[in-house]
Computed example of a mutant assay.
Amino acid sequence: MADEFQSGWQLTESDPGVFSELLKRLGTPLVVDDLYSLDSLSLAEHQPIQAFIFLFKWVSTPQDSMAGQYDPEFPGFFAHQVVNNACATLAVMNAIGNVPGLPMGTELTDLINFTTGMDPQTRGMVITSSDWLREAHNALSPPSSISLDDPSTQKTAADAYHFIVYMPYMGCIYEFDGLKDAPISHGVYEEKGEGWVAKAREVIEARIATYPPESLDFSLLALHDDPVPSLQKHLADLQASGNQAEAAEVAARLERENHKREQWAFENSLRRHNHFGLIHALLLALAKGNQLDTAKENAKKALSERRAKKGGSAMDED
């Protein structure tokens, strides 16, 4: 993979607001939410779910220990990751490129159509050479960000986190990992009951079970239809029919969804702002007051608690 200093692709935070902003820029009617459980009740409010995005600490594993089977003849959309730090957007592309009939922005539609028929390596090179897509990927990276990495130093596997996708395609559950040779089929699923989600749950839980107990080296996101338009329509229909009790329930959920988007917008505005001047002034003040060590320990504690809440690392570091 190309060096991150040459590729121009920056780290992506594993955050629903960041992913949802990217999806909005791509012109798709999808959003992302954190998942803390795969039980039916937890997933119900996010239906219909189009895909699961799984973030995990990358470690080298023997080929014969891999679950599922490579599908080198996969007829859908699949791109290799060919530059560092691009796996969040590559995961999104590998997911939305396989959602039938999904509305997309003109630039994204043209890019996907242009790569039709290309092998995964060439497709990955074309995608990551797209200036507008790289700009969309980097849109929520802090301006003038400073990297503490030495370009001559290779990152260790212990530092590497990676995004992959689990989703249905032509009756099977597929795993899309841009670092693998081909999509991985995990077999067919039954249409009855929860459908593909039930099979995906089995696959993901088996993957999680390979980690040590109480491990926080992974997190899970649900890629699903934006519920706001349907909630707005449903609310209007209920109000028109005079069903005030159910209308109140729908209105409460719509309010929660709108509040969530307000929070995303606020947090994303902070991500866009350059805080280095403020940070420098605060560090100087803390150092002069002999409070820098205490502040550092408090910051480590806060970061640890945040990672525990989010289920692992907050960054895509591959």
Rank of each mutant, 00 (worst) to 15 (best):
I49T: 07
V32K: 09
S304G: 04
E4C: 01
Q81P: 01
N274Q: 00
V228K: 12
A95H: 12
E175L: 14
V228W: 02
L102D: 01
F77H: 11
S313D: 06
S185R: 09
L283A: 09
L26Y: 03
E249K: 15
A88H: 04
E191L: 14
M1C: 11
T109N: 15
L179W: 01
T61H: 13
A299R: 08
F176V: 09
K155G: 05
R272W: 00
A88I: 04
Y189N: 03
F218S: 11
D15N: 12
H273E: 09
P62L: 05
P227G: 10
S37Y: 07
I49E: 08
A2H: 07
D15E: 08
L30T: 05
E262T: 10
N98D: 05
D3L: 08
P143Y: 00
T153A: 12
H259P: 00
H275V: 03
P103D: 02
E297H: 13
D110A: 15
E175M: 15
M93A: 14
L35K: 12
A91Y: 01
V82S: 07
D316W: 04
G97A: 06
A206T: 06
S230T: 14
A160K: 13
H80P: 00
F74N: 05
G105I: 09
T61E: 14
P212F: 05
M315G: 05
V18G: 00
V18R: 05
F77A: 07
Y174F: 15
Q291T: 04
K300M: 02
A252V: 08
T28S: 13
Q69S: 13
S42L: 01
R134H: 02
P168T: 13
S219D: 05
E175T: 14
L11T: 14
K233M: 06
H137G: 02
